[in-house]
Amino acid sequence: MNFKSVPEIWAAIQQGQWRKPTSGLAPGYTQANVVILPKKEAFDFLLYCYRNEKPCPIIDVTDPGQPSPPVAGPHADIRYHVPRYRVYRHGELEKEVDDIAELYTDDMVTFLIGCSFTFEEALIQAGIPVRHIEENRNVPMYITNIQTTPAGIFSGPMVVSMRPMPEAMAQQAAEITAPFRKAHGGPVHIGDPAAIGIKDIHRVDFGEPPVIREGEVPVFWACGVTPQMALKNAKPPLVITHSPGYMFITTITEEELRRQ
Score class of each variant (00 low, 15 high):
I146F: 12
N52S: 01
A126D: 14
V97G: 12
P38A: 02
N33I: 03
H90G: 00
E96Q: 15
P129I: 05
Q14S: 13
V34E: 00
E134P: 03
E134W: 10
V61K: 02
L93A: 04
P69S: 09
E134A: 13
V35T: 08
G24K: 06
E53A: 09
P69M: 08
G73V: 04
V61N: 00
Y88R: 13
T144H: 00
E92P: 11
Y104V: 00
W18M: 03
Y50R: 15
R131E: 12
T110P: 00
I143F: 06
F111A: 04
I128M: 09
A72C: 15
L103Y: 12
W10T: 05
E120D: 09
F43R: 14
R84W: 10
V87W: 09
W18R: 00
L123G: 08
D77R: 06
E102V: 14
V6F: 08
T30D: 01
W18T: 03
E41G: 08
N33V: 05
P83Y: 03
I143T: 13
I113T: 03
H90V: 06
V35Q: 00
A101L: 09
C49F: 07
N145W: 04
C115L: 02
H75I: 14
D106K: 12
K40L: 10
T118P: 03
M141C: 02
Q17P: 12
V6P: 05
T118R: 06
L112V: 06
D63T: 13
P64T: 10
L112K: 04
A122R: 07
F3T: 10
G114T: 02
A76N: 05
E102N: 15
E120Q: 12
Y50W: 15
I143H: 06
V35W: 05
I58F: 04
T105R: 15
T62R: 03
G24P: 08
R86K: 12
R51Q: 09
K40M: 03
L123H: 10
V61D: 09
T22Q: 07
G73L: 08
Y85N: 04
T62F: 07
L37G: 08
E8S: 13
E53D: 12
H81N: 13
G114V: 05
L47H: 11
P64D: 10
Q66F: 12
N138F: 03
G91T: 11
N138H: 01
R79K: 14
R79I: 11
P69K: 02
G127M: 11
T110M: 00
I124S: 13
E120L: 09
A26P: 07
I133C: 02
P74H: 02
N33F: 02
T110K: 01
L103Q: 07
I36P: 01
A101E: 13
T144V: 03
W18E: 08
P140I: 04
